[in-house]
């Protein structure tokens, strides 16, 4: 039964903003090693769902489980440490830090030395710094980003920044990775590279459950095992990509009523 274990599961999640229902009874179950797509027109509440998952928002009602543990009352920091990481729609790298340091930040909370060790340069600091430095560098190497390790994160081209952001989220080897419109703002060439990059990640991190919000159908179709289609906060269809693609309700939502 190992395969049927769910890594993320939510039941009837609703999210109100002053009377506006951004998410209306959303339910989802995600197993490890899968890629799930979340699509829908602007304002369908997709990013809100991600924000609920990563606990930036607390849902108005409904329950959320991460790896079998109820996280309704947990905060952003806790779920991150439990193995749920994300990227943002508009890239949010830490501008004051190098690429390597950006990736290291993800590991910093787990580095085993305290402030006293830090200021006195005790061996534990040296050892742990070396450990997380190595681990961050390994991840960058794995994702073929190591040549940019010392560059200023925000001075890189947009496509690379996007990949660094993904590397930052992957370095802790999370159970769930949320990608919020990874192709937004990329040119066609970069999108092409991104798809390759994501496929690579699929292979490198076989246990990872990947959730993707995207507008670009080509990207979704080539990556996802399962799709959820949102419109005005509701799920209007779900299933295999090929199935969803010819669902009349979905077509209506995307192309307008005939």
């Amino acid at each position: 039964m190992e395969n049927s274990r769910l890594v993320l599961r939510c039941n009837d999640i609703c999210m109100d903003f002053g009377g506006v229902k951004a998410v209306d009874h959303f339910s989802m179950a995600v197993s490890p090693s899968t890629t799930t797509g979340l699509i829908g027109p602007n304002g369908a509440g997709k990013t809100t769902i991600f924000n609920v998952f990563s606990r930036i928002y607390r849902q108005t009602s409904g329950s959320l489980e991460l790896d079998g543990v109820n996280v309704d009352n947990r905060g952003q920091v806790e779920v991150a440490r439990m193995g749920l990481t994300r990227t943002f729609q508009n890239i949010r790298l830490f501008s004051g830090l190098s690429v390597l340091d950006n990736v290291k930040v993800s590991l910093d909370h787990s580095a085993g030395y305290n402030m006293l060790d830090a200021v006195l340069h005790l061996p534990s600091r040296q050892r742990e710094e070396r450990r997380i430095g190595q681990r961050a560098l390994d991840t960058l190497k794995l994702l073929k980003l190591d040549q940019y390790a010392q560059s200023h994160a925000t001075s890189l081209p947009y496509g690379l920044q996007r990949r660094v952001e993904i590397a930052r989220a992957l370095v802790t080897e999370p159970k769930v990775l949320l990608l919020d419109e990874p192709a937004a703002g990329l040119n066609p060439e970069e999108v092409f590279q991104l798809v390759d990059f994501l496929k690579q990640i699929r292979e490198l991190y076989p246990q990872l459950a990947l959730l993707v919000i995207e507008h670009r159908m080509d990207l979704i179709m080539s990556l996802c095992d399962c799709l959820y289609v949102q419109n005005f906060g509701r799920t209007i269809a779900q299933g295999k990509p090929a199935q969803v693609q010819c669902d009349p309700v979905v077509l209506a939502a995307y192309l307008g009523e005939e």
Partner: peptide, 12 residues
């Protein structure tokens, strides 16, 4: 630089 992003990466 970004409190929300920092939190999402486990910074308390």
């Amino acid at each position: 630089t970004d409190e929300t992003a920092a939190k999402s990466f486990g910074v308390d």
